[in-house]
């Protein structure tokens, strides 16, 4: 009886500790698991796959380092795919730390694909007023970003040749830990018909599904699982796929806690009913 009450009012620190231990151990465990590809991820992949060499795309970095464990693997997988397709990548940041994450990502893959800053990709400077950036790029990208991250004049950069505004951009991919994809839809899609794709944290993903159905977003990479799906699609198993084991076991642990809580709840309910009948 007492145990049931204890389970029902379980000290949350026990849950924290159990989860902590599980997450501490699972990186050393590897389970072979088939990654099932969801449609929103496949749509992003297909869109990039259909592009031609030299097509310009915008990659918006809208997350701070806190979301890096979840969003960096998908950023890397997506950029790797872009490099495979030899696309021109234009980085913008709606978060002040976004550009440094973009630098890190490009440092990781640029040697492999022989990508050069200014020629194959460009990091544009960070501008804190998002709406000005999002709208301004619809008029002229080089006007709203006269200089790149390193202070070079953007006019005349090879990577921006023939790229004037959204009309020249094949896809705008926003990696975000907040609601920036919605603002890209509001400013860039609604106003300038820019095609938008997004990669978001799992906790925010459900917010963006309505935009998928309306076609305002072409696809969505959802959390670490989405990143693992993208890695599977480009045949390059990396961090996200490896972390799937930890995520899987953590989910199972939470499910077990919920089940235990419910079992205790029903036992408690039955006991109370018995007590009532007993006293009656």
């Amino acid at each position: 009886m007492d145990i049931i009450k204890k389970i029902l009012h379980l000290d949350r620190r026990i849950i924290f500790l159990t989860l902590f231990i599980v997450l501490l151990i699972t990186p050393f465990i590897h389970l072979e698991m088939k990654i099932n590809i969801t449609n929103p991820t496949r749509r992003i992949f297909n869109d990039v796959e259909e592009m031609s060499e030299g097509d310009p795309i915008i990659v918006s970095m809208s997350y701070a380092p806190f979301a890096k464990p979840e969003l960096y693997p998908m950023t890397l997988a997506f950029l790797r795919h872009c490099c495979m397709k030899k696309l021109r990548i234009i980085f913008v940041a709606t978060n002040e730390a976004g550009m440094s994450i973009a630098i890190q990502a490009m440092e990781e893959i640029k040697m492999e694909f022989e990508y050069e800053h200014g020629k194959d990709y460009v990091l544009l400077a960070f501008n804190p007023v998002l709406s000005a950036v999002m709208l301004g790029m619809g008029e002229s990208i080089t006007d709203i970003f006269p200089e790149d991250y390193y202070g070079n004049k953007t006019k005349g950069l090879k990577v921006l040749k023939d790229v004037n505004d959204y009309r020249d951009i094949k896809l705008l991919m926003d990696f975000s830990a907040g609601d920036s994809p919605v603002w890209w839809v509001v400013y860039a899609n609604t106003r300038y018909n820019q095609r938008i794709g997004t990669g978001v944290t799992a906790v925010m993903a459900a917010d963006f599904y309505p935009y998928l159905n309306t076609g305002q977003m072409i696809g969505l990479i959802n959390g670490l699982k989405g990143a693992a799906e993208y890695e599977t699609l480009i045949n390059h198993t990396a961090e996200a796929t490896e972390k799937m084991t930890s995520q899987a076991i953590a989910h199972i642990v939470i499910i077990l806690f919920i089940l235990i809580g419910n079992i205790a709840y029903f036992i408690d309910k039955r006991n109370k009913r018995k007590e009532r009948h007993g006293t009656a």
Binding site: D47, E50, M51, R167, D168, I169
Partner: peptide, 9 residues
């Protein structure tokens, strides 16, 4: 300059 090709095909 300043040209965009909209169709994906």
């Amino acid at each position: 300059m300043g040209l965009s090709l909209k169709p994906s095909k």
